[in-house]
């Protein structure tokens, strides 16, 4: 598979003091689900914010689909990052409180320039069904009228309706109860399989990452200390940090 995202020597410091990220190198290929795992403060979310354009790297490169987007801003960035979508931890704050969920999912298609209204409606209904929400029953509800798991389904529908190439999921299942988390994980696995999008799955939960991801990158104090296929990382961890993580998992 061809390369979709490449981070090279990415470096960022807050207020010139501590380095938040040092020399981050990471490659995600088309269709690849890569887990980015690390403890709080390790810099996971900072990487997501560099990708979303909220932060700008001090040095290094972010190449997405062949374009260097490191310092791109405005319309040029929007053109270059077509196909990126995000899902956050808290589906409530990442949805519009006042709009029916079907309209919010449709908004993604409007943004991506789908002019045909009937086509939009058709795709919204299809994706809502795909995430397990009956469009007739739930489409006209506002987020307050849904449970936490249903809201996260809407957030995933809004992110995937326009067929993304890269989904950035920042702790997307961390706030959910185990049975609900299981449903959302199943959904992400099925959607990434059927739609073929790549995913940067950011999480602190090794169990979740080990279940879902093709590749794992372990982030520790702003550095990627280990990267590899999930199976290899879990059976034969190289870095002491990863070994400690895996040992904690394996404990009876």
């Amino acid at each position: 598979m061809s390369e979709l995202l490449r981070l090279t020597d990415l470096r960022l410091a807050y207020t010139g003091e501590r380095l938040v990220l040092r020399d981050i190198d990471l490659v995600i290929r088309e269709g690849d689900v890569t887990g980015l795992i690390g403890e709080s403060g390790s810099g996971k979310t900072t990487i997501a914010r560099l990708l979303s354009g909220e932060l700008e790297a001090e040095s290094g490169q972010i190449i997405y689909a062949g374009t260097d987007i490191t310092h791109l801003r405005g319309a040029a960035r929007r053109r270059a990052t077509q196909g990126m979508a995000m899902v956050f931890q808290d589906p409530y704050t990442s949805l519009d409180t006042w709009r029916p969920v079907a309209a919010q999912v449709e908004e993604s298609l409007i943004i991506r320039g789908e002019r045909d209204r009937d086509e939009r409606r058709r795709r919204v209904a299809a994706i809502l069904r795909a995430v397990g929400l009956d469009p007739e029953r739930y489409g006209s509800r506002v987020p307050a009228e849904l449970s936490g798991g249903q809201r996260q389904r809407v957030a995933i529908a809004a992110a995937t309706v326009a067929r993304p190439r890269l989904l950035i999921a920042d702790e997307a299942v961390s706030a959910l109860d185990i049975p609900v988390q299981a449903q959302i994980l199943n959904l992400l696995a099925l959607l990434s399989g059927s739609m073929g999008f790549a995913c940067l799955f950011i999480s602190h939960d090794l169990n979740v990452v080990s279940w879902l991801c093709d590749h794992v990158a372990v982030l520790h104090e702003g550095e990627i200390v280990e990267y590899g296929e999930t199976g290899r990382v879990f059976t034969n961890p190289q870095h002491p940090r990863t070994q400690a993580l895996v040992r904690r998992l394996a404990r009876p």
């Binding site: 354009g53 909220e54 990126m84 979508a85 956050f88 704050t93 519009d96 957030a155 809004a158």
Partner: peptide, 22 residues
């Protein structure tokens, strides 16, 4: 800076659309 606005910005919404619609 809310996740909702960042989400639609990442989707590619223009500043004008972010401001008026979102």
């Amino acid at each position: 800076s809310s996740p909702h606005v960042i989400r639609v910005q990442v989707m590619g919404a223009s500043p004008w659309r972010v401001m008026t619609v979102h």
